[in-house]
Design a protein around this nucleic acid. Structure first.
Lengths: 338, 338
DNA sequence: CTGTTAGCGCCTTCAG
DNA sequence: CTGAAGGCGCTAACAG
């Protein structure tokens, strides 16, 4: 059975379609009496306006697109949660697109979105993205774009990020203060804004404490986790003097943890590990894993708010609306000592 | 700048709108020559059809709605991943709606979706849902519905689930075989299909091994995790004879793990724990947590496939298309012994 | 092979 | 306060 439409309601009420439409939108120019009649029938018939017709007519879809690498990364799951919250409050819907860090997919998604399916886009760029023509071309549309977490420096728009540089600096100092002499840094792609910032925080902290900056201690991971495990193991065996590890992403922190155990390197006695992570369950790791935890939910919510504000006012987002939220360095106690 | 439309292309090519439309859809009834002309201009102008206009006209949105309690539960994140994969392959888009296990929200979401925003719905019901009128009313529309994981027995449609009863039975036997005498069962809501099945598997396994079925060993958790921790702690102290725990959901498994540590009950020597869980990081827990892991990605993918098949053929989904996938009992070795 | 025409359901001027 | 009419962009029937 097809859903009822305005025409059917109008016929049944002996009113014009226009009046019914206005009544349902609570327009001032319709009498309270007819409003009530209309509303009564509408709810009785479970009338629901056709989103596509009204989107076409009004030229706005009340929908935002979220383009992220993966949803199985807990950071992004939390961010979506925040985004959905903000969107729902404003009566917006959320379309999800996953790039799986694949540049070609990202391009095709953005290209499609330019057709006007969404009123605005929230995005965390794929790790492989270098050519940003597809993103620049969004400027020629009326679709606002807000970046979160993995931003694109060359695009002039609002960005919601965390203080990656500072927290990486702080994490490295934490390791130095704990007596580490040879701190490895694990990162995925130095192509990514976050990867670069985190690496720089690490490097600058080492320099500030006149500690060696050995390039051979910096390991570039890949998307393949098995491969990463092998790379880390190789590094740890080649450099048995490593007594600290700073992992730029969760996956690598967990992998490093794994490798240390496998090699029988005691954590934290032999090797201390700090990593970016949003997994709650790391609190149950024993020995403890110190983490830098991002306010993922807030990042999503704030990014969505900025986007929605622009969408509602049909104005461009300004880079001056960018936001930097603070991550938290969580040092967990060993469960032995609880 | 507004995106180009068919009209503009048609004018520039001295063709009718209809021909341009047909050319872009690769219709047989248009010459190869004009097709090429049209396509060339379309790509040059970055033409992208307006999704809303075409949805309105064709009366199909190429969009499916996914209604789930939360996205921060890793099971659902994995499921979305599978859903997105299947949807993308068929050229479908994915709208996400979160109920947060709130009945009223679920009703309002479904009500809205009946307006025709989506061509089909994939859903895992909220834990508080008892009245299913809103779901039944979907039958009166042409919108197919497929349940996954948290299904609703009274609705006559396809359901994709896991062998909860069997794997719970198996998990309980696993604990019995390991010598447990007093096995607690932790669950969230016995209102949920999965909660009931899992509880029944536990009960039947106990009975089959003529083991005590003490109702005081069954703990009903809530949505509030702090509260759950307190409840579990209270139970463990009231019944110090408990030597096995079977947790029906991840959250409770992790909480039980926590409480045991806090109370100094050695795992697995004093207490053995088995829980449903999709967290990869539990593999790093030490001592090990035996888990029942659902094929979450596959569940999402298969559910989406069934839905999309129905959508494409404009046919109802049959309950005979239901699928039961197998969970895996993963017994992890202690890292001590690696 | 191409063009003309008629809507999909809704909103929004413009007239009464 | 209400109605009539036009059109958002696209597709599909019907003519040529």
């Amino acid at each position: 059975m097809k859903p009822v439409n305005l025409k059917q309601l109008a016929e049944e009420l002996n009113l014009s379609i226009a009046t019914v439409s206005r009544a349902l939108q609570d327009s001032h120019e319709v009498s309270a009496a007819t409003k009530n009649r209309v509303r009564a029938l509408a709810t009785a018939r479970h009338y629901e306006p056709n989103a596509y017709a009204s989107s076409l007519r009004r030229n706005q879809s009340k929908t935002i697109g979220v383009v992220i690498p993966k949803v199985t990364n807990h950071f992004f799951a939390l961010a979506i949660n925040g985004i959905e919250e903000a969107a729902r409050q404003c009566g917006y819907h959320v379309l999800i697109y996953l790039t799986h860090d694949d540049y070609a997919r990202e391009v095709s998604i953005i290209q499609h979105l330019k057709g006007g399916r969404v009123d605005g886009i929230l995005m965390s760029v794929a790790s492989g993205t270098e050519d940003i023509a597809h993103l620049k071309s969004l400027k020629e549309t009326t679709i606002p774009l807000v970046f979160f977490d993995r931003v694109c420096a060359d695009i002039h728009t609002a960005k919601v990020t965390t203080n990656d540089y500072e927290s990486s600096y702080q994490a490295t100092e934490h390791l130095l203060a704990a007596g580490c002499q040879h701190i490895a840094h694990l990162l995925i792609s130095n192509n990514l804004s976050i990867g670069r910032n985190r690496l720089q925080g690490y490097l600058d902290a080492l320099q500030a404490h006149s500690c060696e900056q050995d390039p051979s201690l910096i390991l570039h991971g890949t998307m393949d986790n098995q491969h990463n495990l092998a790379l880390i193991e190789e590094l740890m065996q080649r450099r048995p003097d490593i007594d600290g590890i700073f992992a730029s992403v969760e996956r690598l922190a967990v992998s490093a943890y794994h490798v240390c155990r496998k090699l029988g390197r005691a954590i934290p006695q032999d090797v201390k590990i700090v990593g970016f992570s949003n997994l709650e369950s790391v609190s149950l790791f024993d020995p403890p894993l110190t983490t830098i935890t991002q306010p993922a939910h807030d990042i999503g919510r704030e990014a969505a708010k900025i986007l929605l504000r622009a969408v509602e006012k049909k104005r461009a987002v300004l880079s001056s609306q960018s936001l930097v939220l603070n991550s938290e360095l969580v040092r967990r106690r060993s469960t032995e000592s609880v």
